[in-house]
Nucleic acid binder design. Structure first.
Length: 474
RNA sequence: CGGGGCGUAGCGCAGUCUGGUUAGCGCGCUUGGUUCGGGACCAAGAGGUCGCCAGUUCAAAUCUGGCCGCCCCGACCA
């Protein structure tokens, strides 16, 4: 086979592209900067949607849909927001063969159009809170794009909530971040650091931004989800006020939050190996794939047995039976490994005779013979083991590459090897920017669980009360 | 936008420097057969405006000019 995956050690970013292409997650499109998400990739996205949508609904959120086009004037209403987004917006100037009276922005995010509607819907404290989410596509005209990680158009969910008080909105923003954390860790088996973004790194238009940050295998950071407390910024911009219980007229407090198809990129770079993708069982669209192995003389009995196993597994798992005649088993093994299916179920004539199957772990390639009578429980146990071990492996990787550093020279040296650095920072944007300029490292976030610790800013030496996480990032 | 690389069959490439028969190779694809416990083998086939446009020349994939596109690395971002 000509198509090989570039080893990670040789060129990590080529490895990434090879995996995306060869696992058939996505393909380059005729439109520059855009990608086609192929069925294998979209199935993962659907799985992500399914899990998150359930969590959103369980916490009182509902789905809705707002227009793709946003009047230019709306975009311009919130000062910081415009400034943050204007340069990367696609703008429609013509429609129906004529120039439009007012240009329409293709949404880079929907705060403005949503808050223009919230103005109509909110009068009283009785109308609050509004907890709306939408699954949508957005467009940001990026200069440099990479499959899943940064494309001109991408899919995401964006939650937009309205609350009577700051406390309530703050609580919402934090609740969602916790949903993102548990999703990342419990489903994607991807350890994340939860924390607050610095003033410099926060969302354009937010008062506070929170994020989950993950470490990829090349030790670069990837922001995997964000949640914002928007304060009254959009309420003021769109004049959204309500009369409270106490009779006072007040501005509404807002949040917004989102995760995108970028999570698929995170998945690849957290678990993949030189053979291809590895999908954690809880997020895998297909958890087991059965590969029958037959000779002409054993064909019927192997296939019949395989179908029986398939019907059994199907009761409880997402399973595929690969009974294609035109490919040999070895070819199929490789193909399913590239696609990252957690468990391969091998069934040959010898297994049929012994009334067993052979389970093969994708992550370790370990082969485990299992009698048919214990198949269901063993499969479940093994999926669980794989899920846990992927998380542990990723967590170990992160721990081994995270360093507490108090000296700027050392900071630069350690960073060169690739790492997360826990260092003191005085809180000034100037230091943050200088460090970024000199080292390309940014403050990923200020972790919620950091220890109170007095120290000196890694850059200027001014007093600091705790460490923040620095890293080079995607 | 700056730097680097590349456009020749569906994919990966050779051929270009030094212009000259029907433009090759591997993989894939089609048909038939044998195979099948880690990317099978044999045989016969199909498939090309050599990125586009001009120019030089008896003759251009090959030389010249312009344009377009893509990938990688930097300034912006989820």
């Amino acid at each position: 086979m000509a198509e090989r995956i570039t080893p990670r050690s040789e060129d990590y970013s080529r490895w990434y592209t090879d995996v995306v292409l060869q696992a058939r997650l996505a393909d380059y499109s005729p439109v520059k900067g855009c990608m086609v998400i192929r069925p294998n990739g979209y199935a993962i996205w659907e799985k992500i949607q399914q899990v998150l949508d359930k969590k959103f609904k369980e916490t009182g959120h509902v789905n809705a849909y707002f227009p793709l086009f946003i009047p230019e004037s709306f975009m311009k209403k919130e000062a910081e927001h415009v400034e943050g987004f204007a340069p990367e917006c696609a703008v429609v100037t013509h429609g129906g063969g004529e120039e439009l009276e007012e240009p329409l922005y293709v949404r880079p995010t929907s705060e403005t159009i949503i808050w223009s509607m919230y103005k109509k819907w909110i009068m009283s404290y009785r109308d609050l809170p509004i907890l709306i989410n939408q699954w949508a596509n957005v467009v940001r005209w990026e200069m440099r794009t990479r499959l899943f990680l940064r494309t001109t158009e991408f899919l995401w969910q964006e939650g937009h909530t309205a609350h009577a008080t700051e406390e309530e909105a703050e609580e919402e923003a934090r609740r969602i971040l916790e949903i993102y954390r548990s999703f990342a860790e419990d489903y994607m088996a991807m350890p994340v650091i939860t924390g607050q973004k610095t003033e410099n790194e926060k969302f354009a238009g937010a008062v506070r931004t929170y994020s989950i940050e993950a470490m990829m295998q090349d030790k670069k950071a990837l922001q995997a989800g964000t949640s914002h407390y928007l304060g009254e910024n959009f309420a003021r911009a769109f004049d959204v006020k309500f009369q409270d219980k106490d009779g006072q007229v007040k501005y509404v407090h807002a949040t917004s939050w989102g995760v995108s198809t970028r999570l698929i990129g995170a998945l690849i770079m957290t678990h993949g190996d030189d053979q291809g993708l590895i999908i954690p069982p809880r997020i895998a669209p297909t958890q087991l794939v059965i590969v029958p192995i037959w000779q002409e003389s054993t064909r019927t009995k192997v296939l019949e047995f395989s179908e029986r196993v398939y019907r059994q597994l199907k009761e409880k798992f997402d399973v595929k039976l690969d009974d294609r005649d035109q490919y040999k088993p070895g070819y199929k093994f490789t193909e399913w490994e590239i696609q990252g299916i957690p468990i391969r179920v091998e069934i040959g004539p010898r297994d049929v005779d012994a009334n067993q199957v052979v389970l093969v772990r994708r992550d370790t390639r370990e082969k485990i013979p299992v009698g048919l009578d214990r198949l269901m429980e063993e499969a479940e146990k093994l999926l669980d083991t794989i899920q846990k071990s992927l998380f542990e492996r990723a967590l170990k990787m992160r721990k081994e590459n995270t360093f507490r550093v108090d000296d700027y020279r050392e900071f630069q040296d350690v960073l060169e090897k690739g790492a997360f650095l826990e260092s003191h920072w005085c809180g000034n944007t100037e230091c943050e920017l200088k460090i970024k300029e000199e080292t390309k490292a940014t403050i990923r976030n200020i972790p919620f669980d950091r220890e109170e610790e007095t120290g000196k800013c890694i850059y200027c030496g001014q007093p600091s009360t705790g460490r923040v996480v620095f890293a080079r990032a995607y």
